[in-house]
Design a protein around this nucleic acid. Structure first.
Lengths: 183, 183
DNA sequence: ATTATTCTACCTATCGATAGGTAGACATTA
DNA sequence: TAATGTCTACCTATCGATAGGTAGAATAAT
């Protein structure tokens, strides 16, 4: 049983870590930086997350849970395919405009081969959930899985391009193009 | 004027650096690792590239030059739009299957905000060249630039997803879908 | 109810390893 | 000889990780 204060401190640590990680990847996170941003010592971060991979895994798992939950909020069963994919696009646009940082899955996916095994496993699990949700939204048979791969790819890539070109509208236009022209 | 041996040594350094960087991003490169892979000391790498940003900038600029050159090889003027975009897709598939590592622009684009200024400038210049080539291939007016953004986004994202899911065919399928269904 | 014990959530201090970077000696080549 | 390239031998800063300790809250035993 964890006290209320402990949980909020853990949340603080995860918040700061996610922010750093979304800006510069896994290596951009250091125990010292996280600790000083939270207002504690690095050893206290180690107390909650013994190894750096524990920290990375916890962040990506929390991110995945929140992301999928956002997709399922509202009356999903009643929505048309277009509305569902628009909802997916909104989740991406929201993630970008929220803090001006890209999707955690995207940056960690890009550097997957240099991540600790637990972290890369969690990243792969995130993409599996995302693909499964999208394929189900499209209908659910085999071609829909491949279509889901294409849609997720486009969103992920558009997010990187938006940040690189410093133009968030690239992602919005990508979402519109997927919904209006492609589907 | 640089001697022939010097140039080949510089190429060796850039080869190893590009490989490391494509696997784990900018932070995955260290002078010691690069030096020992080449067979020299880290101070000798510093001789050719005083700062780490010089090394990063040189790698991305060489990469951009080779990538664009590959797109322009052959009789581009005679090609149809489909053939040109297929050529772009082949460049991406080739880059992935070559060493099993993703596009340098993609991983550096993802961590752009944590890169040294010269390096991030070079990354942005790479994407500008890529977008310009693609927009020109499509015809050249304003909507074609936005269409180019979408195509590049899809390729970049598909590359990340291919590596994450350890399935190179995701990228191939993405290329087919862009050429056959979308264009 | 009070004492004794354990647990929680931190702390300070330090470890070995590694990072990027520099000065100057030495060797090689033109 | 002069310039170029590589070396040894350092530096400072920071990394993840660990050891050992402590105040206070919660729990168990008397």
């Amino acid at each position: 049983m964890v006290s209320k204060n402990t949980q909020s401190r853990i949340d603080e640590i995860l918040d700061v870590t996610e922010d750093h990680m979304r800006r510069g990847g896994f290596d951009a996170v250091s125990f010292r930086d996280i600790a000083s941003a939270v207002g504690i010592k690095s050893s206290s971060v180690h107390y909650h997350f013994p190894h750096k991979s524990d920290l990375g895994k916890a962040v990506i798992e929390r991110y995945a849970e929140e992301f999928i939950q956002a997709l399922n909020s509202g009356d999903v069963a009643e929505d048309t395919v277009q509305v569902k994919i628009q909802r997916l696009g909104n989740a991406y646009v929201g993630a970008l405009s929220d803090k001006g940082t890209i999707c955690l899955g995207c940056i960690l996916g890009a550097e997957l081969s240099s991540l600790p095994a637990d972290v890369s496993d969690a990243v792969q699990a995130f993409f599996d959930q995302l693909l499964a949700w999208t394929a189900a939204a499209l209908g659910g048979d085999k071609d829909h899985l491949e279509q889901a791969e294409f849609i997720i790819s486009s969103f992920q890539g558009a997010m990187v391009l938006s940040v690189t070109k410093k133009d968030p509208k690239i992602l919005s236009r990508c979402a519109d193009r997927l919904c209006n022209s492609y589907l």
